[in-house]
Simulated assay, not measured.
Amino acid sequence: MHLDDRDRRILSLLQADSRISNADLAEAVGMSTSALWRRVRQMEEAGVIERYGVVVNPTAVGLGFQAIVHVQLTRHDPDKIVEFIRAVENNTDVQDCYATTGQSDYHLRVMCRDLDAYNQFLESFLFRLPAVASAQTNVVLRTVKRTRSVHF
C-alpha cells in the first residue's frame, strides 16, 4: 500500500493516542469522518495498522527488573530452533526476541518482578531449553528512551 502524507499524519496521530475519536482525527487531518474511516480501514486491511493498544508503565505493575539477554544456541538444528522460538513466544517474561547476526544468535528483552524472579526465569525456563548453550545478561539500569511508535 502506498502511503501519502495524509496517511502518515493519520498514523502518527493514532500512534500518539489510539483512543482519539474519528471526528477529532478527521478534523486534524482535514477529512470527513466517513473518508477517514475508509482510509483507516484500508490501512488495517493492508496490515499497515497491526493493532491498537496502550503503553503500560512496567514499574507501576510490579515489573521492576529488566534485562537484555544474549543467547547462544548449542547447534542450529531446525527442530531445536523451532522449539526455542515457540517457547520464547509463549513465555510472558520475554517482551521481545530478535534473531541477529554476530556473537549471539538471539537477543531477548526480559521483564520480571525482581532479580529473584529473573533467576527463576533462567533456571526454570531458559537453561532448560535444549538449544540454549549459554546466555549473557545485561541488566537495564534505567530506560533512556522507550519508543513504541514507528517514525517515517
Rank of each mutant, 00 (worst) to 15 (best):
D17H: 02
L11C: 03
W37T: 15
L25N: 06
A35L: 13
C112Y: 00
Y98D: 03
R146G: 15
I68G: 12
Q136R: 10
E123S: 07
Q66E: 13
L14R: 06
R148E: 15
A131Q: 04
P58K: 04
H151S: 13
K145H: 12
A133W: 12
L126F: 03
Y52R: 01
S18N: 09
V61I: 09
E123A: 05
L11S: 01
L73Y: 02
Y98N: 05
T137E: 09
Y106C: 05
H107I: 14
G64A: 07
K145P: 14
S124Q: 06
L25A: 07
D116L: 01
V48H: 02
D105Y: 02
A60G: 03
M111H: 09
T100W: 03
T137N: 13
I20F: 13
V110H: 03
N119T: 12
K145D: 08
N22P: 13
K80A: 06
S149C: 11
Q136G: 14
T74N: 08
D105P: 05
T147F: 06
V40A: 09
Q95H: 12
T74V: 05
D105A: 03
A99Y: 01
E50R: 00
T143Y: 14
T147S: 13
D96C: 11
Q120Y: 02
S18W: 08
L122E: 02
V132M: 01
R6H: 07
V55E: 10
E50L: 00
F125G: 01
G30Q: 02
S34C: 15
T100P: 10
L122I: 11
D17G: 04
F84H: 01
L11M: 06
C112S: 01
I20P: 09
E45M: 10
Y98K: 03
A28I: 09
D116A: 04
S149I: 06
T143E: 15
C97K: 00
